[in-house]
Design a binder for these strands. Sequence first.
DNA 1: TTCCAGGGGTAGA
DNA 2: TCTACCCATGGA
Length: 289
Amino acid sequence: MIETLTLIADSPFDFHAVRTSHGWHRLAPFHDDDSGVLLRWLQLADGTIVRLDLAEAPNGVHLTIESSAPLHGDRRAEIVAAVRWMLGLDLDLREFYALAAEEPRLRQAVAQRAGRLLRSPTLFEDVVKTILTTNTTWAQTKAMNRRLVETLGVGLDGARAFPTPAALAAADEGTWSALRLGYRAAYLRELAERVAAGALDLEALKTGDLETRALIAELKRIKGIGDYAAATIAAILGRYDRIGMDSIARDLVSRHFYGGEPVTPAQIQAAFERFGSYRFLAYWFWDWD
DNA sequence: TTCCAGGGGTAGA
DNA sequence: TCTACCCATGGA
């Protein structure tokens, strides 16, 4: 069963800018072959697996849904909500664009209508993936994530959705070992068990009820989430106050702002101080060339 | 062999 | 709050 919809975004919006906003479009169960269509497999609350094809539309996105089960109202609503969340269709970034318009190094971002960050349907998936980016290379992040999806995700025509917390929590020792996640396995296992048991409600953090400081503190209570990961996840949640200091940020800010001298976390924040609560976006979409 | 990659936990000060 | 030291994995 195939159905198509067009979803309209808060303006300004550009589908390709969100699609390529960071590395997530290269991580399963997203699939991007650079043809302009972003594929994604999604497991709905009732277990139904759907394939989503996302493509550019005027001020929005064309969504093609392929499902083995009928798309009654609840399923369709769940899919639409997931897509709106993933692409940040309802984000209002006018304040960021106003700041960016005054900065030559952000003119390109403004012209490209960049600013939104691609998100996963669940915060669980974003937290898992962020932990998989820590202290490793991007190549390994992709490989670890792929093994996780292929081993524990539920499939449709060979492709698989991102595994649920319950699926991770139920995996045995041998399965975890075969995933070759290094010491991160223990973090993901504990996370999955807490979420699956209802002891940790990650989805509740999407509501925006917490102040940024409290949100960061809450995220850092998760083992495996430190300053860098918390700042990254906060940005995914629309809180851009802090810049996550990883090796890339250290290198870029050091070379472009501090003459190649080693930089502290405070110096990285200071370099983008004038962007206030949009520091992360200014840093992320900065034209470093 | 050693280092380190989109870091983080822990102990000890 | 700051500093060592440790942590699995795989590529350079």
